[in-house]
Amino acid sequence: MARLVYYHHPQAENFSLKYSSASQSEILSRRKDSDGATKLIGYPFDTPVYALYESDTEIKDANEIDFDQKWLSDRLAELPREGQVVAFRLVELLEAAVDVREEEEFRLYKEFEPQKIRQALNHVSWGAPLPQVAGEVMSNLILRHSLPNANHRTGIAMLQFCIESVEPDFEMPRTHLDDETWQEWVDPYIVDSKRLITIRRNNIRFKQLQELGVDLVERKDGIQIQLDEFELDMHWRDALSTYATRHEDHCTEFARAVLERAERDDLFEKAGPTKQEFIDYLESGLVERDFRELF
Rank of each mutant, 00 (worst) to 15 (best):
L4Q: 11
L4R: 06
Y7P: 01
P10R: 03
Q11Y: 01
A12F: 05
A12W: 10
E13D: 11
E13F: 08
K18F: 09
A22Q: 08
Q24V: 11
S25G: 01
S25A: 10
I27F: 02
R31M: 03
R31K: 05
R31I: 00
S34A: 04
D35H: 00
G36C: 07
A37D: 08
T38S: 00
T38W: 00
T38N: 00
I41G: 00
P44Q: 06
F45I: 13
F45C: 11
D46W: 13
V49I: 06
V49G: 01
A51E: 02
T57S: 01
K60A: 14
A62E: 08
E64I: 04
D68K: 10
Q69I: 15
L72H: 07
L72Y: 13
S73K: 14
S73F: 12
R75S: 12
L76C: 06
E78Y: 14
E78C: 07
L79W: 10
R81A: 13
R81P: 11
E82L: 06
A87G: 08
F88K: 14
L94P: 10
L94I: 15
A97K: 10
V100S: 04
R101G: 05
R101H: 05
E103F: 10
E103L: 09
E104K: 14
E113V: 12
Q119L: 05
A120S: 15
S125P: 09
A128G: 05
P129S: 06
Q132E: 05
V133L: 09
V133D: 10
E136M: 06
V137Q: 06
S139L: 04
L141M: 14
L141R: 01
I142K: 02
I142D: 00
R144I: 13
R144P: 01
P148T: 08
P148A: 09
A150F: 13
A150S: 13
I156T: 12
M158S: 03
M158P: 07
Q160W: 11
S165Q: 12
S165R: 12
D169M: 12
E171W: 03
L177E: 08
L177K: 06
T181R: 09
T181F: 05
V186N: 02
P188Q: 08
I190V: 15
V191P: 00
S193K: 05
I199P: 00
I199G: 00
N202S: 12
N203I: 13
N203Y: 04
F206N: 01
K207A: 08
Q208S: 08
Q208D: 03
E211V: 06
D215K: 06
K220R: 12
Q226K: 07
D228E: 14
D228P: 04
E229S: 06
M234R: 01
W236F: 11
W236R: 11
D238M: 07
D238V: 05
D238T: 09
D238H: 07
A239M: 12
Y243T: 08
Y243A: 03
A244T: 09
H247R: 07
D249P: 01
F254K: 04
R256A: 09
A257N: 13
V258S: 07
L259R: 03
E260R: 14
E260W: 13
E260Y: 14
E263W: 14
R264Y: 14
D265C: 02
D266T: 15
F268L: 09
F268W: 04
P273C: 10
P273Q: 14
T274P: 02
T274H: 04
T274E: 04
T274W: 01
K275V: 13
E277H: 11
E277P: 07
F278K: 03
D280C: 10
G285A: 06
R289K: 12
F291I: 15
E293F: 09
